[in-house]
Nucleic acid binder design. Sequence first.
RNA 1: GGCCCCAUCGUCUAGCGGUUAGGACAUCGGCCUCUCACGCCGGUAACGCGGGUUCAAUUCCCGCUGGGGUCGCCA
Length: 489
Amino acid sequence: MAKPRLRFAPSPTGYLHIGGVRTALFNWLWAKKTGGAFVLRIEDTDQERSTAASTKIILDSLRWLGLSWDEGPDPGGASGPEMGAYGPYTQMKRLDIYKQYAERLIQEKKAYRCYCTKEELDAQRDVLKKKDPKAQFKYPGTCRHRTDEPNEPFVVRFKVERSGSITYVDKVFGEVVTPNVELQDFVLLRSDGVPLYNFGAVIDDITMEISLVARGRDHMINTPPQILLYQALGANVPEFAHLPMMLAQSGEKLSKRHGAVSVGEYEEQGYAPGAVLNYLARFGWAFGDQEIFSKEELIAAFDWTHCGRGDGKFDPKKFLAINYEHLKSSTLMPDAEYAHRALRFVHARGGLDHVTTTDVLRALYTIRERAQTFVQAANMLDPFFRSPPFMDEKAVAKFLVKEVAPRLRELGDALATLDEFTEATVESKMHAWLASTGLEIKAIGQPVRVALTGRTASPSLYQVMCVLGRDETCARLARAANVAEKSAV
RNA sequence: GGCCCCAUCGUCUAGCGGUUAGGACAUCGGCCUCUCACGCCGGUAACGCGGGUUCAAUUCCCGCUGGGGUCGCCA
């Protein structure tokens, strides 16, 4: 059996939607697993809404996610404007191909020119609606048998047989049967020669030799007419796999008003691409009880038989939790990669341009298990690199009070004597000092924390000191002591 | 409304005739603790309803209810 060829065919009408990513992911996973091809095609025939900027955003998002395509457009990529042997991979560059196929269908009497205007059809629709609000308007076939060719604009319509039915076996939903009478003579080409979705997609899938079409369930209704097209053109009908919908918590279609829905937003919020893929993969698909997957594990485990059929609700909390698992795991994400990704967010905070991945790497272990996103990670990393750190006013007021000033000085003096400044030496030194003063660590811990980090929550004090180093630690203690001294309380 | 699809904890799901219906997220307790986290232990929580089929239904069939999709010269 030939290697399967799959495709992801987004419309460049905005950002890359999280639901679109799931579609892309499932296609990609299957292509990777089977050694098949993953084709990226841009369906930009809606000229009203399509933009080049959107195409760029979509390509960038796919690259960020690591969903690499074997064939497709590649602006900004290493391979030039198009890659692959079936190009172009942008529909507006393939208009002559569609026209050719449409001509052929007309020649073979499988399609015909329709001169009915949009206005006429709208009027017919209204009349019917008025007569019977429950009635379904279907194109009545006015131009079906027309033989003249007036010099008027026309669309090309497909001639749907009135009898019979269309059957296909969906890889996730099973057998689906649709009687032809449910269909109507649908439009192939608009009057301006641009194909409509069903025609463009089918012609492309035929000419690009796509063997498995996996897409959202909202496209299920398009499958029967598309199959008719394959048959009319004597082409092999590909396999189909429809994926259940991803809805908002409210049960509505997921959209902007339900929070972040674009890949770009999650990138900005500090999600890991692998986590995005992991969450989306487990949405509508399961592999026993396993929740956390690396990309490789996903490829190895994925199949269509374990895809569910019920729609689901997007859960931002679980998504965050999955992201956390990925950020915590040095297996899923090596330290070097973590540091590299986190650095961008550290820099984004401003004033820390001098910080390097090496710096981040050094401080990483103190915060790695605490940050759910890279934004949080950068926030936790901030006090290590900002000198002096931002001092939280409330924290200062509460903990850097007059009475702790001498304590902070004593501790600083004690630590200043250390030659080897490691977590262990710092800890034992501090314990010794504590013992000499009779203080409990609880009594001085928070003031020290505020002195070192400017805030009340941080990694372990010993870790913080160790990362800061002796001189910086002592400097911060001294500085805090001065602040405490001047405190009113 | 027509046509189509779907239905296990709040959410994502495991289950493929016989289970104390499992896991994860969320949530609620407790432990741990220099703060915040982590971690650990434990709790609450589901088979929509009604008929069949069967010795036995969460599981198979039908109906209902509920939810969703789609009805364009959008995709």
